[in-house]
């Protein structure tokens, strides 16, 4: 069986996989990182979003083998070593941006990429547009948008440190 070597949340692993194994299956089934979820089979819902080399991608629409040699960050890898949460995680809780929690990991990963790539700042309308790849069925997005909006200044201030 082919082998894939990748670094997930700072830890390098080499795993044998069938060629047809999706990255999300590798993360969930082989590496036990069940924080990344599968909510659809048509690449629409975004519950499976992770970062690969700093870009958000849908891990259900990528073969594990395509991730060979990459740096992957999942929801489990966001908090600092001492447990300090990422500002986006903090703001999701502060603004009640999650209910059932199932879309949350993908939503948080997408939101971080969105804010990072837009240091000029985003309006609430732009945030809504930037969430096109993520579905939430619980919140009506109102509080998700608020949380991401609030995280902008925190993240940009942190990046400027």
């Amino acid at each position: 069986m082919p082998q894939v070597t990748l670094t997930v949340n700072g830890k390098t692993s080499s795993v044998e996989v069938e060629a047809r194994t999706l990255l999300v299956e590798l993360l969930r089934d082989k590496l036990g990182l069940t924080g990344t979820h599968v909510g659809c089979d048509t690449s629409q819902c975004g519950a499976c979003v992770v970062h690969i080399d700093g870009n958000s991608v849908k891990s259900c629409t990528m073969l594990a083998l395509q991730a060979d040699g990459t740096q992957v960050t999942t929801i489990e890898g966001l908090a600092a070593a001492d447990g300090t949460l990422h500002p986006m995680q903090e703001m999701f809780r502060e603004h009640h941006a999650l209910q059932c929690g199932f879309c949350t990991p993908g939503m948080v990963m997408s939101a971080i990429d969105l804010v990072q790539k837009n240091p000029q700042g985003l309006s609430q309308d732009e945030i809504r547009h930037g969430l096109e790849g993520n579905l939430c069925r619980c919140t009506g997005y109102h509080n998700i948008v608020k949380a991401i909006d609030a995280s902008q200044s925190l993240m940009h201030a942190k990046a400027a440190e």
Partner: peptide, 9 residues
């Protein structure tokens, strides 16, 4: 095209 994640790949 698509969404941010589609555009990444």
């Amino acid at each position: 095209i698509g969404d941010n994640q589609v555009r990444s790949r």
